[in-house]
Design a protein around this nucleic acid. Structure first.
Lengths: 147, 147
DNA sequence: TATTGTTATACTCTATAACTATA
DNA sequence: TATAGTTATAGAGTATAACAATA
């Protein structure tokens, strides 16, 4: 008797279905962690987008795939919460440049850390070999994510 | 010289950070596929929850982690779209049982297939060994998702 | 009394259309 | 004219509080 029924399925169609479900479920779990109710998911997504530097309102709207009026409101709420600052661009006064405040940056880092820690706790329960498998899988997923 | 810089990092903290980012990015990509604008994410989530059989409004609210009034509205909109049907339970007339219509089931299956196919197209571009790695990783992620 | 679901009300996120200010 | 952003308006999704119907 072969051990086919024990082997993880590798046919693209079957694997895609299993992997899709597993990916969606785990990311949902991760998203629930560290979302300490301080800001909404939309607001947090904007904060995370600003992590690597200031962006104009238009750039934020494009990256978050929302229309400018929606971003106007979200940014206004974040300004109110003192999590971002907005200043008029001096060279093109039509543009508003949005950046993280120190408090905003701290919130992004804390949430990120909480999410990472939730996953890290799951990983320490695995064997070395399983972690090696996930490490290689991570590289493959990174490639898929870029495509 | 060791090949440390080539090896995928397996320390739980580092791996968790890389894996988290990769997971979130790929699931976001998957979620964007086949979301043909026919229904909203909330509505689709309810349809998917009904895939394995009818549920009462209360059960739906619990599974979707929303309060009953929100589910009342979402179900009403899906009834309007002819994607679900709701009938009063004959044994307990307080309860409303919600089930997929044929159209609703078709929409769930089509969306699911489109998402799976997007991922399957990425998988056929990989080597056999990479697919084996992802297959084993899927089993590990399934365990993490259940925890 | 307890449970299921609805109605009333309010707030957030989103969209499109029309507008203002700047280039 | 074209672009960046806002205001006006509307619809979906969510919540809590108060209520109706049934168990």
């Amino acid at each position: 008797m072969s051990d086919e029924r024990l082997a993880a399925p590798t046919q693209p169609g079957v694997l895609a279905d299993d992997l899709r479900v597993a990916l969606m479920r785990v990311s949902r779990r991760i998203r629930l962690e560290g979302a300490g109710g301080k800001v909404t998911p939309s607001q947090f997504s904007v904060l995370a987008a600003l992590k690597h530097g200031p962006l104009t309102l238009r750039e934020l709207a494009d990256r978050e795939q929302v229309q400018p009026p929606a971003m106007t409101r979200t940014v206004a709420s974040l300004v109110e919460l003192r999590l971002v600052a907005r200043v008029q661009d001096q060279h093109d006064r039509r543009q508003a440049v949005v950046s993280l405040t120190r408090t905003g940056r701290r919130l992004v880092d804390e949430t990120r850390n909480q999410r990472t820690e939730w996953l890290a706790r799951r990983l320490v329960e695995l064997s070395d070999e399983e972690r090696r498998t996930l490490a290689v899988a991570t590289e493959i997923l990174q490639r898929i994510g870029r495509s």
